[in-house]
Simulated scan of single mutants.
Amino acid sequence: MFELSVPWWELVLRATAVYAALLLLMRMSGKRTVGQFTPFDLLVVMLLSEGVSNALTGGEESVLGGLIVACTLLGLNALVSRLSARSDRIRKLAEGEAVVVGYDGRILDERLRAEHVTREDVMQALREADCDVADMKLALVEADGKISILRRAEGMAAHLRG
């Protein structure tokens, strides 16, 4: 139950390698997978966890082995969080940053494609912000995948009067 079939440090190395690889893959896959899970996105995440489980444990099935992997993953996550809070460069690398997908009443389709966000997602965010495309100053896909809308000043004044 508590006896390991592989050295403890191998489990730490495996967990670190898988954590780093998945972090990189998630960053490369675009912001949508992080922000708003569709049923497809959720399925992919579930399958990813199942697919990497053997890579994490190397066939180790003991309670101790599972706890070592869990502690390593939680420790890495805490480390990345702390480093991200102290360094903009690390934060941008780990979490990303907001990307402009609409500017001055125009939706930038090439940026939407690069971020794996649909035009309909932006239109929904505009509706939620009670903003017409013409009144949009900026549309941003935030690092967490949420779409933020900034109105033009004159559009806001007209909105407040109306």
Rank of each mutant, 00 (worst) to 15 (best):
M1L: 11
M1A: 14
F2C: 04
L4G: 04
V6N: 09
P7Y: 00
W9S: 10
W9T: 06
E10C: 07
E10W: 14
L11D: 00
V12Q: 00
V12C: 03
L13M: 12
A15C: 03
T16M: 08
T16K: 09
T16R: 13
A17C: 09
A21Q: 07
L22K: 08
L23E: 07
L23I: 04
L24P: 06
R27D: 05
R27H: 04
S29M: 12
R32D: 02
T33N: 13
V34Y: 00
V34C: 02
V34K: 05
G35I: 09
G35T: 09
F37K: 13
T38Q: 01
T38V: 02
T38P: 01
P39M: 06
D41Q: 05
L43A: 14
V44D: 00
V44S: 02
M46T: 13
M46N: 03
L47E: 01
S49G: 15
E50H: 12
E50Q: 14
E50I: 11
V52W: 00
S53F: 02
S53T: 11
N54C: 00
A55W: 11
T57H: 12
T57W: 00
G58Y: 04
G58I: 05
G59R: 07
E61Q: 13
E61D: 13
V63N: 06
V63P: 03
V63H: 03
V63F: 10
V63C: 03
V63R: 08
L64P: 05
G65D: 03
L67M: 12
A70Y: 04
A70P: 00
A70E: 01
L74I: 14
L74R: 01
L74K: 00
L74N: 02
G75M: 06
L76T: 05
L76F: 02
N77L: 10
N77M: 08
L79H: 09
L79K: 03
S81P: 00
S81K: 15
R82M: 13
A85R: 13
R86N: 11
D88V: 11
D88A: 14
I90E: 07
R91A: 11
L93S: 13
A94R: 08
E95I: 09
G96R: 10
E97I: 01
A98C: 02
A98N: 03
V99Q: 10
D104P: 05
G105S: 08
R106I: 11
R106C: 10
L108N: 06
D109A: 15
D109G: 10
D109W: 04
E110K: 15
R111L: 10
L112T: 08
L112D: 08
L112K: 09
R113A: 14
E115S: 10
H116Q: 13
V117E: 04
V117Y: 04
T118N: 03
D121V: 06
V122Y: 08
V122A: 10
V122K: 09
M123K: 15
L126A: 04
E128A: 13
E128C: 05
E128Y: 03
D130S: 14
D132Q: 14
A134W: 08
M136V: 02
M136F: 01
M136I: 06
A139V: 05
L140G: 00
L140V: 05
E142I: 07
A143H: 04
K146V: 10
K146H: 14
K146F: 11
I147P: 07
I147R: 08
L150S: 12
E154T: 15
G155F: 01
G155N: 01
M156S: 10
M156Q: 15
H159F: 15
H159A: 15
L160Q: 14
L160W: 04
R161I: 11
R161Y: 06
G162I: 12
